[in-house]
């Protein structure tokens, strides 16, 4: 069950990334956001903004410090959705 939820989250992250970068991307939990997707600091904040809307939650910017991979971001979103 956990896997399904996470897969959906990864798909949302892909959608948000495509929206911000304006090109299609192939991502998995292991994808390194900065290195593999060439996402700079501003684009990452914009991707997070899309995800805030997709999940109707707030992602404080300081929580992004520990996010390196798509999996990290998916876990952060899952945590915030549980109210942490």
């Amino acid at each position: 069950m956990q896997t399904v939820v996470t897969d959906l989250t990864v798909r949302q992250i892909a959608l948000a990334t495509e929206q911000v970068l304006g090109k299609s991307v192939q991502i998995s939990r292991e994808t390194d956001i900065a290195r593999d997707l060439e996402v700079d600091s501003l684009s990452l904040m914009n991707i997070v903004m899309e995800l805030e809307d997709a999940f109707d939650l707030s992602v404080p910017l300081d929580r992004l410090a520990s996010v390196q991979t798509v999996g990290d971001l998916a876990d952060l979103l899952a945590m915030l959705r549980r109210g942490h």
Partner: peptide
């Protein structure tokens, strides 16, 4: 050490939405 949230540039409706979300 405050929590930082961004809203879409010059968009009062988006600001409203993000405040409501809090």
């Amino acid at each position: 050490s405050a929590e930082v949230i961004r809203f879409r540039h010059n968009d009062p409706d988006d600001l409203y939405k993000r405040l409501r979300r809090l």
